[in-house]
Amino acid sequence: MALQAIAFYLMATVTILAGLAVVFARNPVHSVLFLITAFFSAAGLFVLMGAEFIAMLLIVVYVGAVAVLFLFVVMMLDVDFSQLREGFARYLPIGLLVAGVLTIEMVIIAINVALHGAASKNATPQASLPDVSNAETIGRVLYTDYVYIFQAAGLVLLVAMIGAIVLTLRHKAGIKRQSIPAQNARTPKTGMTIVDIKPGEGISE
């Protein structure tokens, strides 16, 4: 138990510090690297809670795909970050005001929950069965109870794909494309001409 507590506090601290560093780092590449750190320690927290499947997903999907994609975007796009920060001082007061109000509200809620508990009558989430793995538990409901939502989520991705194609794909007229049938249909007769060149004249074509 003591080991778990130590692991929890260690990873929770790292998550929060890395999260802060994401926002405050001057170099955007550093921000992305701190983001990866935050994902890793959050994955550790999930493992502590017994949700090993989500922990692995976090590492595979967020670290492996999303964060690397961010890194590509940050490195490949020539974004002038000093220009982006230009309006920072101007909008700081209103930003601080909104953030302050939200923080105060969250603290009030947190204190309230700590004193009175979340809610008396709520349904508590069930823990997964000890002899069934996470993946199997998710699999049991994903394609039965939640198949409707699962398919709809697939359609959301389809819309994103159609959108990306509609907005960016351009068919250029003069572009040269490979046509395999045309290549296979070539014979010496169609692909080649024999020209009889007289000495000293060259080819005019």
């Binding site: 709809a152 359609l155 959301v156 819309v159 994103a160 159609i162 959108g163 509609v166 907005l167």
Partner: peptide
């Protein structure tokens, strides 16, 4: 689903 389609 509906808002992504509307953005496009």
């Amino acid at each position: 689903l509906h808002s992504l389609a509307l953005y496009v």
